[in-house]
Design a protein around this nucleic acid. Structure first.
Length: 259
DNA sequence: AACACGACCTGGTAGC
DNA sequence: TGCTACCAGGTCGTGT
């Protein structure tokens, strides 16, 4: 579920909790004891996303920091399901609930220093003005890794994951195994445009498809060009989509379009 | 500094 | 039907 677009959709929904005061916090798994100890009595002042990270700013300068990893989801509801991994009960009667089948998500409480230390490890926000071709090029020049793995490194660009990295490379017509440092100016420009375009489109469809509990419906799902389409025909050239292993994970690409 | 790889978790499904 | 093997949208720690 959660790469940048999905995390953005989660945050937008969650913002209805802003202004609420936390009455009780409960951690079953996926969270540190600090969540139960430090958050009750505090008001939620804002909810922000950075890359795939979620920050709920609380009164008193603390932040609830959440990372959904593979299967996590945060939503607001009145009923707390039996399998909730963690929840924050608000004075409004609703609760912020973490569901996560695989229990890999993590929630902790950060002070301002810890928060900025974490943010310092992240690359530019791809849908903001700080993400420029120049910055992408400077990072790419220093990496001899395959461009797909380069894109998954959150220190280079924050928010891309396995799906949208593959989709961006398809739009940019770049072969995923190509060395990042070997990309020329034209290709880097195409890649920059593709990353921004894919994420913009995906934020739109994730927002529409996101339904809170249970995550994302099939409704307005992002139309994948390559991801998950092994052996299906490319929608542009008709070649058969391929799947290869990179860094122990699947990469999908079109051998006709991507060079 | 950059990189490869296993670990962390659970569940769904393809194949026998 | 039941078992096994593999797959899954992410990151971290360890070792080179």
């Amino acid at each position: 579920m959660p790469e940048l677009p999905e995390v953005e959709a989660v945050c937008r929904r969650l913002r209805r909790a802003v202004g609420g005061r936390i009455r009780v916090a409960r951690v079953r798994r996926c969270g540190t004891p600090a969540v139960e100890v430090k958050t009750p009595g505090r008001r939620i002042e804002s909810i922000e996303r950075r890359g795939k990270h979620i920050f709920m700013a609380l009164s008193g300068g603390l932040h609830v920091h959440a990372h959904l990893r593979m299967s996590g989801n945060l939503y607001l509801a009145r009923r707390i399901p039996a399998d909730a991994r963690l929840w924050l009960e608000l004075d409004s009667g609703r609760a912020v609930i973490l569901e996560d089948r695989r229990a890999l998500a993590r929630v902790d409480v950060l002070g301002p220093r810890e928060k900025s230390r974490l943010l310092a490890r992240l690359g530019p926000e791809p849908l903001s003005a700080e993400f420029t071709v120049l910055r992408l090029a400077a990072a790419a020049r220093r990496s001899r890794r395959p461009v797909k793995l380069f894109l998954l490194d959150q220190r280079r660009v924050a928010g891309l994951g396995n799906i949208y990295a593959a989709e961006a490379l398809f739009r940019a017509r770049i072969h995923p195994a190509r060395r990042a440092s070997g990309l020329g100016r034209t290709r880097l420009e195409a890649l920059h445009t593709a990353i921004v375009g894919v994420l913009r489109d995906a934020v739109q469809s994730a927002f529409v498809a996101y339904s809170g509990p249970g995550g994302f419906g099939e409704g307005e799902a992002f139309p994948m060009a390559v991801y998950g389409r092994e052996r299906e025909p490319c929608l542009v050239c008709g070649e058969s989509i391929r799947r290869i292993q990179q860094g122990g994970r699947s990469t999908y690409y079109c051998p006709g379009c991507q060079r």
